[in-house]
Design a binder for these strands. Structure first.
Lengths: 262, 262
DNA sequence: GAGTGGATTTCGCAT
DNA sequence: ATGCGAAGTCCACTC
């Protein structure tokens, strides 16, 4: 039943056996999975206590720790990547301690019983692609300014002005200042008012014409009227297209990197 | 090797076997654990793609889903509690789909290979106690206003005033308005200035005396002088004691609930 | 149901 | 290092 195949798995092991597996896994930087009855104590930025119960412990290859109860999206206790470990038997219990130094935080699990223990080496090199975060859309606009309009030249982004942060700030083909407000999804009145505030704020400083462009996949109903009233422009911007642009740029960068290496 | 003991565990199963275990686990509302090579696709508020690689899938008893890569605190993809599942074989691959209705989000895992599959029923009834979040401390003050001072009567909390939000707002034994600013840890100058701003803001509105009380476990050095200068008060407030108060209140509520039922 | 603020938020980037 | 804003944030709670 034990130590079979590439996955090192123990079912209903003695605590001492589990300890051996845990130590080996930590030493080899493998992914650890432990299910059993444990107490959990955390002390650091805050302090928490959790009495005995059956939980799932996941220790990742980078030292991240997750303790999950049988319900809920969030871990009940955790430790971010890069922490150090102590393991030992104490009073017939298996104690696993994960220590983070900055800030100082200690997470202690005390197992009375282990039902399942596994030590796994996971190979995972694929790239994760998320379409359509606002940040990505801004990046795409900076890479391909013509997404806004022909001749648009970005100057800065996340520019701080009085009411907040301008997504992208630049000049158009005629040299007029342009404030671009990007929204990941259908732009509502809030986005327009925000843009108008930025335009007004910059206008009052530079004392010449400033255009405002709202870039979003679509507008909520009534927003167009508001835009027209305030003299602002709208430019449809597809999050997925933005993601493609970024993906291509990333691929190009990788290619250049490897060209530079060969 | 299979279906042994209380934990139903499969090591290096055929996909069809894994499917059976997954379906049984979902039907019986058990905790599911799957390790294997899979693709992950998400579509909902955003959209993401992740090519093949070895990952850990955790499905909890309330339908929460977590997909973890071998590194990092956060799941690469997930689904909050309460989602529905579809499972099937397609082109010799095991497909697990977790669907959330509001907002509409679909998470699809396509396994080429399963290295480890487990179906577990976890019993976990212990109460999780977190000492000292600011929110908990505020709650403790509302439950036991004498933590601030004898005769203190809270009126509202999280009261919006010009510069931000007042933690607790009330009247003292003499009917004077009191603004309470709670800090979870040693209060610095920032807390005092924040409190002073709130006091000033409210004073300008009500046009009579307003006291300010800083409630925190301790003060940073120099803070006392600042408090005295600004005419504000300090009240030591122990986060752990607050946690105890909340714990007792919760217990009392439970008792009342069960009394009401019998 | 929408909106607001906290979180042991984490994460990433800019200063 | 520090600070700030975004996040498929989640989560609890008010309106």
């Amino acid at each position: 039943m034990r130590n079979r195949g590439p996955a090192n798995v123990l079912v209903e092991p003695e605590l001492q056996e589990a300890l051996t597996l845990v130590r080996e896994g930590l030493a080899k930087r493998k992914t650890l999975f432990l299910v059993g009855v444990c107490r959990v104590d955390y002390k650091g930025r805050a302090e928490s206590k959790l009495g005995p119960g059956e939980r799932v412990l996941l220790v990742k290859e980078d030292g991240a720790v997750l303790v999950h109860r049988p319900t809920g999206y969030e871990p009940v206790n955790w430790q971010p990547e890069g922490c150090l470990f102590q393991t030992r038997m104490m009073d017939d219990r298996l104690v696993i301690r994960a220590i983070r130094s900055k800030p100082r935080e200690v997470l202690t699990l005390t197992f009375n019983q282990v039902n399942l223990a596994a030590q796994l080496h996971l190979v995972d090199r694929s790239e994760f692609i998320l379409y359509a975060s606002e940040r990505d859309m801004r990046q795409a606009v900076l890479l391909n300014p013509e997404l806004i309009e022909p001749g648009f030249k970005p100057i800065t982004y996340e520019k701080k002005v009085e009411p907040g942060f301008v997504d992208v700030y630049g000049v158009d083909r005629d040299g007029r200042f342009v404030v671009v407000e990007i929204k990941r999804k259908t732009a509502g009145c809030g986005a327009v008012l925000q843009l108008a505030k930025y335009v007004g704020s910059i206008k009052s400083v530079v004392n010449r014409e400033v255009r405002g462009v709202l870039a979003a996949p679509s507008m909520a109903k009534g927003v167009q009227r508001l835009l027209v009233t305030l003299g602002l422009d709208f430019k449809p911007l597809d999050p997925r297209k933005c993601a493609e642009i970024l993906h291509k740029a990333e691929t190009k960068k990788l290619l250049e990197f490897f060209e530079g290496r060969t």
